[in-house]
Design a protein around this nucleic acid. Structure first.
Length: 901
DNA sequence: ATCCTCACG
DNA sequence: ACGTACGTGAGGATA
């Protein structure tokens, strides 16, 4: 390709000039200097953009014949050896920046710019070494950096360009300029640092010595050593500080000194730069979507082919579609080195979905098995590998994979890392759980959205095997690429144990519970449904009679017309689209018209009928008479589970009519019992623990009724003076406290004025000062850190906590108060589930854990284990996590879930 | 698809 | 002055 092009080339004029760029320093400057910028696939690109504009500018101005971008490498820079805190004060690199390093390196390759890094050395050491060698050989060099330390390299032959303000503006420093600006020689720059330190690198210097003082001292004494030698002459506090921090000053100078003897094999002469390949650069810039740069470099004609159009990176793996004996054999050979697994299925409900295909990544190959072939005899080794608990599986949504495989009789064991679960822990509020979404969050690409491959909704089609293989291979490779960075991020966030000891084992336990399922007697539901149906018809007729005509009671629009226009009842509340008719509104309207009570009753009955009778009946599987829910571990922002298809965490209990539904939930074997155990007041106990409030802790230690205790303290009365109404109000206050109290919310709940609610809250905080302190502290903490965490280090980020929008900020503040409470309670019961699973196994019990309902665990138990389980379950639950207050779990058993109360 | 309503902790 | 209690999932109506 005769496409070589240079901006300029100094060697044509006979002078060699070496340009050395401090990659880390410049990309950092660029990141903070440029506004946020992303391309259409969500990659952050602002730092790369800034870097590139800087690069183009200096190439144009300096016209170098030789060129290098040096990067820091590895974590243990040799300077650490003497001083562990070196650079310790540095902020962690934000992911939005770190994800740009690979992009920059790729772009530099397209520029044909030599780049390197050397483990154990920083970029400035490499640059220092190369400038020294250039000097020795009588050549000139230009160094570009944002770091003032680099000025120590300036000489007759070496010029330093420091970025100023932005990134493409630089300031030129030869020794004269340094003398002019600081009155120092380049060599004295390290003395300057030695005295004044550098907070960004955690170099201490001498306390109380800033730039001014340091320059004054150096003007007088010349070097750190001389300053220290004359420490006795320096008067006052300054002299004291100098004399007291001699070691610190010497060490700081040493840390600031660039090491110029790096064992580099490359000579600067190896770094000749002859320009870039226009088509490669155009493709790279297009991928980054730097249209202005493409234009500026006049590259718009240089885009070759479709590949450049889409900017697709060349895959570094080979997709192998498994169709026959040869591929099966190759797959079997590759299994011991498998790095990632992907199981693709076609629907949301893993208990109903059919597998589409399966992919295994091993080295440079990704084997893709169309799902139907999993039953072939040749699949034996693959099935054995899947079932081998010692063969580690890294995957995406392994919980779902296990269920999908189980449906076709394939066992999955040995799950060690799930990128979806890991990503959830790192940011549980991130909405897009797709692999593509995950990739873009981590600055990676190369996978098409599922929708683009399969279509969505009714148009869902599995493409031909080759296209399928390409897609599944890309996804499986994406899992491999994500696993390392995610695992590292978990470590960095202190969530290693949360992941490996709690969430990952729990995923397997949940899959077990779901596969087990719970028997629901269709006949019982149908009986109950008939009864509801009769009452619905009766109520409907009565409503029509009172209205004077028939209408759709279930339509809020029609109902609104009837209530607020025909019957002219007062409008209490409006929604975005019309009149509000929710239960709260209807309760207020009850005194005005008889019809209102009937509507409430109608609502209650139709809810039970459609959601619980008809809804559950549809979910009973004819093969086993059971309902198999699907617990989702990566949905709730607080760390709770959620339950789908159907939701078994919202089966009625508060109203007797609805509670009857629970009679249909029965054991799967004759004579067995349903046993349910629930934590008593777990959230308030957690609050007592994390707030450390003495009064609240004492109440739980005495096993007092916490609402009565609250009433006593808030109303200032003795236990026997607390009446039902006071206790009810105190209970509402306790709920409010857990939810993140606001006077408005409490006033709504108790139907009192905001002022009265505020007075209650004030009374509460006076009675429980530790709780007030917790609420204040947690909000401060959230403002400072940007997130809150639970006892087990689960995190939730609250970006709105610093919002200037009152609503957003208030919401975030309440969330900051609530999440550690609700989330720690979630931690506790999850831990109890892991321990319970172990306990059942260790003791060889036949009892099975079936359901979790946030603070409750439901089991089915054979009669001979009933006594054991009545003790074991509450025991394990109460010991799941040691708090400053007891954790009490109450247990009950019966022939169905209703009776286990 | 989105809104409203309501079941649970 | 602002105007919501925290966290979910599902069904039916409507646009």
């Amino acid at each position: 390709m005769a496409n070589e092009k240079t901006i300029a080339n100094a060697s044509e004029s006979g002078t060699d000039k070496l340009l050395l760029i401090d990659g880390n320093s410049i990309i950092n400057r660029a990141f903070y200097a440029m506004p946020p910028l992303t391309n259409s696939s969500g990659m952050h690109t602002n730092a790369v953009f800034g870097f590139t504009t800087m690069l183009l500018k200096v190439l144009e101005e300096e016209k170098p014949s030789h060129l290098l971008v040096a990067f820091d490498a590895g974590k243990t820079v040799f300077r650490h050896e003497g001083y562990a805190e070196y650079k310790g004060g540095r902020q962690k690199t934000p992911p939005e920046l770190s994800e740009q390093f690979p992009l920059l390196k790729e772009l530099l390759r397209a520029f044909s710019v030599p780049q390197f890094e050397l483990p154990g050395y920083e970029a400035d050491d490499i640059i220092g070494t190369l400038t020294r060698r250039a000097e020795e050989q009588g050549q000139t060099a230009v160094v570009v950096s944002g770091d003032k330390d680099m000025l120590q390299l300036a000489s007759d032959q070496v010029t330093v360009l420091l970025t100023r303000k932005g990134v493409s503006e630089t300031e030129r420093y030869a020794p004269e300029e340094i003398a002019e600006k600081y009155g120092l020689t380049p060599a004295q720059i390290v003395d300057l640092k030695g005295l004044m330190g550098d907070s960004s690198d955690n170099i201490p210097g001498i306390p109380g010595v800033g730039e001014k003082t340091a320059l004054k001292l150096l003007a007088e004494y010349g070097t750190v050593e001389e300053v220290l030698a004359h420490g006795g002459e320096i008067k006052g506090k300054l002299g004291e500080n100098v004399r007291g921090h001699e070691d610190s000053a010497r060490m700081s100078k040493e840390l600031a000194t660039i090491f110029r003897e790096v064992p580099l094999e490359q000579q600067w002469t190896d770094l000749a730069w002859r320009g870039y390949d226009a088509s490669a650069l155009a493709a790279a810039l297009r991928k980054l979507e730097f249209k202005s740069l493409i234009e500026r470099l006049d590259l718009s004609g240089s885009v070759a082919g479709d590949d450049a159009e889409t900017g697709a990176a060349a895959p570094v793996y080979e997709a192998v579609l498994v169709r026959g004996a040869d591929e099966w054999a190759a797959l079997a050979d590759a299994l011991p080195a498998a790095e990632a697994l992907l199981v693709e299925a076609n629907g949301d409900n893993p208990h109903q979905t059919e597998g589409i295909g399966l992919a295994v990544v091993s080295g440079e190959q990704v084997f893709v098995v169309p799902y139907a072939r999993l039953g072939e005899p040749d699949a034996g080794p693959l099935r054995a590998w899947l079932a081998d608990a010692d063969a580690e599986k890294r995957g995406y949504d392994l919980h779902r994979s296990e269920l999908v495989l189980a449906r076709s009789g394939v066992e999955l064991r040995g799950q060690t890392f799930c990128v979806q679960l890991a990503a959830y822990l790192l940011d549980p509020t991130e909405a897009d759980p797709s692999l593509t979404g995950l990739l873009s969050r981590y600055g990676l690409s190369g996978v098409q959205p599922d929708e683009a491959v399969y279509g969505k909704g009714a148009k869902f089609r599995v493409p031909d095997e080759e296209a399928l293989a390409a897609h599944l291979a890309a996804k499986a490779d994406a899992v491999r690429r994500l696993a390392g960075p995610l695992a590292e991020a978990l470590e960095d966030a202190g969530m290693r144990r949360l992941y490996y000891e709690l969430e990952q084992p729990l995923a397997v336990i949940l899959a077990g519970m779901e596969k087990q399922g719970i028997v629901v007697e269709a006949s019982a539901l149908e009986e109950l449904g008939k009864e509801f149906q009769g009452r619905i018809e009766q109520t409907t007729a009565e409503i029509y009679r009172l209205a004077g005509f028939e209408f759709n009671i279930g339509s809020t629009k029609q109902l609104g017309d009837v209530l607020f226009e025909k019957l002219a009842l007062p409008v209490v509340k409006k929604t975005k689209t019309g009149y509000s008719t929710d239960a709260e509104v209807l309760e207020k309207l009850e005194p005005y018209h008889e019809i209102v009570r009937l509507i409430l009753h109608y609502r209650q009955l139709t809810k039970l009928q459609s959601t619980y009778i008809e809804g559950l009946l549809k979910e009973i599987r004819p093969e086993d008479g059971k309902i198999h829910t699907f617990y989702r571990q990566t949905i709730a922002a607080t760390g709770r589970l959620s339950s789908q298809f159907p939701n078994l965490q919202n089966i009625p209990i508060r109203m007797e009519e609805g509670r009857q539904i629970r009679k249909a939930f029965v054991p799967s074997e004759p004579g067995w019992r349903i046993l349910a155990a629930d934590y008593s007041q777990i959230e308030l106990r957690v609050l007592a623990h994390i707030s450390g409030d003495e009064g609240l802790k004492e109440a739980f230690r005495q096993e007092m009724d916490v609402h009565t205790k609250t009433a006593m303290d808030v109303f200032g009365v003795s236990a026997d003076q607390v009446d039902g109404n006071m206790r009810r109000q105190a209970k509402a206050v306790n709920f409010g406290i857990v939810y993140g109290i606001s006077d408005y919310g409490l006033s709504q709940n108790l139907h009192i004025t905001r002022k009265e609610a505020a007075a209650f809250i004030e009374q509460y905080f006076n009675a429980f000062p530790g709780v007030r302190r917790y609420m204040d502290d947690i909000v401060d903490q959230a403002k400072r850190d940007g997130y809150v965490k639970t006892l087990l280090e689960r995190r939730r980020y609250l970006p709105d906590i610093r919002s200037s929008n009152f609503n957003l900020r208030s919401f975030a503040e309440r969330t900051a108060m609530n999440t550690p409470i609700q989330g720690t309670a979630a931690d506790v019961i999850k831990l109890a589930m892991v321990r319970m699973d172990e306990a059942l196994r260790e003791r060889g019990l036949k009892s099975r854990m079936l359901l979790q309902v946030h603070d409750e665990l439901v089991f089915e138990v054979p009669p001979e284990e009933l006594d054991t389980m009545r003790e074991l379950v509450p025991d394990v639950m109460s010991k799941a996590l040691q708090l400053d207050v007891p954790l009490l779990a109450e247990v009950s058993a019966g022939v169905n879930w209703y009776e286990a109360k």
